[in-house]
Each structure stands twice: as structure tokens, then as C-alpha cells.
Nucleic acid binder design. Structure first.
Length: 503
RNA sequence: GCCGUCUUAGCUCAGUUGGUUAGAGCGCCUGGUUGUGGACCAGGAGGUCCCAGGUUCGAGACCCGGAGGCGGUACCA
């Protein structure tokens, strides 16, 4: 309604000077409609099924944790929300929305140490929250499906997680070859940095961050970041690590040692990474993981070794892995878009120690459902499936009881159905049914009431039959897709139509 | 956070050196058809030109500040 019109009502509204809020969605959050919700649920179910099959039990903790339990984010100012959404409880304690499922798990395990079986294998699926800059398919609330094994040391536990990651990707609909699980270990990275004489902790961070960008920036960009620094295409400059060219060579050679098969990569790494104890340890771990993956039937197409994988810096302590979707998608404007990582994980052996002081080995993997779902849903949106409810037209309002009973008969045999509850005429009701993606409408007006029959219109068949009709008179007379039924068999006939559509 | 860029109808966008009443396509609503979703035809509704200040006789356009979107980059447990 325009408030510019000078009607008495509008004058009254204007005179109260109501401040109306702007209807707008908080940025980084999604309004999810039926199609997206269904896609997300489907993916969560599929991944959970995989985790459950491998012997992980379900666990749901609440969305909030006290900030000290979440990790390094402490409330030292009025707004301790660097990266997280935090608030102060009425007992003056700061709490924050979880940013992943691992920190709450660590808290749960530490809190219930005496009452849970060790190793503790659990999975969690639910929303997590990050207070950071959103991007396309990058949200501030998103669903993660996470599986972790706490109290499980040794390469077998890591290899299992990798196998599970691969299975989870397939459960999400990615065929072998459409995704890749890339594996590395912290020990190899530590070893090569030692070999390249990078000892300064600050420089080690810069080096790890630089290596992590191998896929995006390529050898040249990473080389700049290891050396003097890099200027990006917007003109912004990123400080480099300032390493010698010999050190840079060592690191680049290492980062490019990834091959198509795991055994080839192991060979390539053997010559580079055995310069010191920690590197040798990393090599042995990878070799052990390799042989267990073989035993699990995880092929080179499913999981490879990639020395350029880094992941969370002050978090992982051993093997790390990342799940990437290789398939390319087109966005709504037809632009080709790839989005890399849809999941990741690794070994974190000192997360629980924060609470208990005891080192507890743990390894886990997590899939980001929301990005996958948003893309899959966008991809399938064009599919015009008539998956809405059957609509019973309300042509004579004095017969609402009858219309409600017709709809009830449909629901009784498992067909989604509703009575039109608006106030518009038949034409508008037909449009409504069309928009609801109704497979059929039930028409009972004067004519049907006299004959005692029910008219059913199959909207899918009708639309198909109408494709070749351009003359409106013919369109109206033909009544494409319509048929008569009795009050006893109309429900069964509609059910048959719905089932034929879904087949 | 930093750099760049953009913001006009529900959507996609035009809008001349700064000059009358700001336009198009699509979508939406109504009618042609008081019992029919499509197509066609006719008509209609819909605007804080992102916000705020300034220059000017006059600003959608120019200047300053801000917000938001997009892209890059940094950070990312």
C-alpha cells in the first residue's frame, strides 16, 4: 500500500508516524524454503547413516558453550565476538554459539570421562555459527556432519576416517572421480620446515599459510609469499616470509610432490622428507595409512596424498585431510563455479588436554552440508516436479464440510491434500493449485453435485496436452487432463496419477 | 580488516553535457472467459532513483561522508 495516496486511512497512518522496520534478512543467514530443506535433510540423513554404519553413536549438545570451553576466544572486552557470536549470561558468564562440533565434543568427553566407553565414537549433525564475512555459498550459519573417534591413536583410526570421508561424499551423490580426499600429515610439514631451516614460529605460520594456497595461487604465488611478498590483483600487498631461495626451493619441491597415486607420492616424498626424525615419522604414518586404505578398498581415485594440504594451524597434530568436490556447477547466471573444500578433518591429540591435562588422542572428519545443499538445490530447481498437495477447489462455500471430507479421504490413503481456504473464484483457485505445484485438483460444483460425481483434473497431463493448443476456445472446451470419477474411487484414481508422476 | 567495484519498479536493466511528469522487458493484478492453471489480446497497480549532507535556478546524474551488495585479498578453530 502506498502511503502517498491521500486517502483517510493513509492520512491516519501517516499521522501516527509509525516507524516501520525494514523487512530484511540478516546477512550471511539463509531463508530456506521447502526444496532446500528437503535437500539438506536428505544429505544429513545420508551422511549420518554412513557414520552410524561405522559404529559411531549420535550425540547432540546444545548450540551454546561457555567461551572458555570453545578455545582461544576469551571475553576480554565488551564484545568477545571475534569470529563467534557471543553473549553474556545473566550470571555474568560469557557464552557463544559453537563454531564447530569438535570443541563441544571435547568438553563433553572431558565432562563425562568416567561414564563413556573409550575409544568414544560419536557423530553430530547440526548448525554451527561463525561470525565472519559471508560469501556466495558461504554462510554464517551452516550445517556440519561430524564424526570423531576419541581415545583412538594410530594410523588405523586416521585411515578409517579417510575411508568414511570418501563414503560420505558418495552418500551425498558424488560419484567416484567427482570428489577427492587429500591427505597429508603435520609431521611431514614440520620435517620439511626443519630441512628448510625455518625455525622462527612466526615464519613457520606464514610458510604453512602460503603452502595452503598452492591450489589457488599456484607455484608462482606461493613462491612470492615465501619470499618477498605478493601483491594481489586489487593492489593489496601481503607480507612474505622472506626466506632464502634455497629454502624456498626445498619447500616448493616438497609442496609439488603430490602424484596421481598414493604409492607414487610416497616415493616422491621419500627422497625429500627423510632428512630428519619428524619427517621420517610422517612418511611412516602415511605409508601405514596407505596400506590400511588398501585393505579398506579405498582406491587412489578416492583418496590421494597431497603435501600441500595444511588446514587448521594450532589445532591438528598429525594426519590431516580435506574433501574436495571436483565437479563444476553453473550458478543462476550461468557462470561456471567451482567450490573446493566441502569437508575436512584430521588428528588432534591435545584438544581434550585443555580440560583434563591428559593427552587424549582423537581424530575426526566433518562435512559441510549447507554448501553442498545450496548448490544441489540450485542445480535441481529447474526440475518442475508436481510435488505439492492435491487441491480441493472450494467453489461453493456453503459446502465446505463436504470439501474437507473429500480432502480427508485423500489424506487417509496417503495423498497430500488440502482444501482451498482463500476467498477467490475458480480461476484464481486453479492458479493457486498451479503455483503450489499440485499434481491434481478436485472439482465439485453444481454440475457434480447434480450428477453425484467428482471431476478430477490432472494438472501435469493437462499442461502437456495444452502444449499444442493455441486457441483459447479449444483449450477451454477440451478440458485437457480432466476426467470424471465417483465419490468412491476418486481418491484411488488420484493416487494412481500422483504415483505415475513420481515414477 | 584491506583494495577495487557497484546500488534506479518484485526481478534484469536503460536513463544523453546537469534540464518538463524517471522508462523498457519479464513478473504481478484485472478483464476478454460469472466452471478452469497454459497461450493470445486489452487494461492496471507498483519508485525514499541505497541513506545523509553539499554544489546549483535546477541533481537519478556532480562533490563529501556513511551503509549495503559483488569481486579480490587477509584471517578461518
Amino acid at each position: 500500500m502506498s502511503t502517498k495516496e491521500n486517502t483517510p486511512e493513509n492520512a491516519a497512518i501517516a499521522s501516527t508516524e509509525t516507524v516501520r522496520p525494514e523487512a530484511r534478512k540478516p546477512r550471511g543467514f539463509q531463508d530456506k524454503r521447502a526444496h532446500l530443506i528437503a535437500t539438506e535433510r536428505h544429505l544429513v540423513d545420508k551422511v549420518s547413516e554412513v557414520y552410524s554404519k561405522w559404529g559411531f553413536e549420535a550425540l547432540d549438545t546444545g548450540p551454546f558453550e561457555y567461551v572458555d570451553a570453545l578455545g582461544k576466544f576469551l571475553p576480554d572486552t565488551d564484545r568477545p565476538n571475534e569470529g563467534v557470536f557471543a553473549l553474556e549470561d545473566d550470571d555474568d558468564q560469557w557464552m557463544a554459539l559453537r563454531y564447530d562440533h569438535t570443541a563441544p565434543l571435547a568438553r563433553f568427553v572431558a565432562e563425562n570421562w568416567n561414564n563413556i566407553p573409550k575409544p568414544f565414537r560419536r557423530y553430530s549433525a547440526g548448525p554451527v555459527y561463525r561470525n565472519e564475512k559471508p560469501g556466495p555459498f558461504r554462510f554464517r550459519e551452516f550445517i556440519q556432519c561430524d564424526a570423531d573417534a576419541v581415545g583412538a591413536s594410530g594410523p588405523a583410526a586416521d585411515a578409517e576416517m579417510i575411508a568414511i570421508a570418501s563414503e560420505a561424499m558418495q552418500a551425498c551423490g558424488a560419484a567416484v572421480g567427482d570428489y577427492a580426499i587429500r591427505v597429508n600429515t603435520r609431521q611431514l610439514l614440520d620435517g620439511v620446515m626443519q630441512a628448510a631451516d625455518v625455525t622462527d614460529p612466526n615464519k613457520r605460520l606464514i610458510v604453512l599459510r602460503a603452502l595452503d594456497k598452492m591450489d589457488r595461487l599456484g607455484v608462482e604465488g606461493v613462491s612470492e609469499l615465501l619470499g618477498g611478498g605478493r601483491k594481489d590483483e586489487s593492489g593489496d600487498f601481503t607480507e612474505g616470509a622472506g626466506l632464502s631461495s634455497a629454502s624456498i626451493d626445498t619447500l616448493l619441491q616438497f609442496a609439488q610432490a603430490g602424484r596421481d597415486t598414493r604409492s607414487e607420492t610416497l616415493e616422491a616424498l621419500a627422497a625429500i622428507a627423510n632428512k630428519n626424525e619428524v619427517g621420517t615419522q610422517g612418511l611412516e604414518d602415511l605409508a601405514a595409512i596407505h596400506s590400511i586404505l588398501n585393505g579398506l578398498g579405498v582406491t587412489d581415485q578416492m583418496a590421494t596424498f597431497d603435501p600441500a594440504i595444511v588446514r587448521g594451524l594450532e589445532y591438528y597434530t598429525g594426519p590431516v585431510f580435506e574433501a574436495e568436490l571436483l565437479k563444476e556447477f553453473k550458478d543462476e547466471k550461468g557462470r561456471l563455479m567451482r567450490f573446493g573444500s566441502v569437508g575436512g578433518g584430521g588428528r588432534y591429540d591435545d584438544l581434550i588436554a585443555r580440560f583434563t591435562g591428559d593427552l587424549v588422542p582423537a581424530t575426526g572428519f566433518s562435512v559441510g552440508i549447507s554448501r553442498l545443499a545450496a548448490v544441489l538445490a540450485a542445480e535441481n530447481e529447474s526440475e518442475n516436479k508436481a510435488d505439492g498437495p492435491v487441491v480441493v477447489l472450494a467453489l461453493q462455500r456453503e459446502h465446505m464440510a463436504d470439501y474437507c471430507s473429500l480432502a480427508a479421504q485423500l489424506r487417509a490413503i496417503g495423498v497430500k491434500a488440502e482444501v482451498y481456504l482463500g476467498t477467490s473464484g475458480m480461476k484464481a483457485q486453479m492458479k493457486y493449485a498451479n503455483r503450489r505445484k499440485a499434481p491434481a485438483v478436485v472439482i465439485v460444483g453444481n454440475q457434480e453435485r447434480e450428477s453425484g460425481k467428482v471431476t478430477v483434473k490432472d494438472l501435469v497431463a493437462g499442461a502437456k496436452a495444452a502444449e499444442n493448443i493455441s486457441d483459447n476456445a479449444e483449450w477451454r472446451e477440451t478440458r485437457p487432463g480432466q476426467f470424471e470419477a465417483t465419490r468412491d474411487d476418486f481418491a484411488a484414481k488420484i493416487k494412481a496419477v500422483v504415483e505415475a508422476n513420481n515414477a
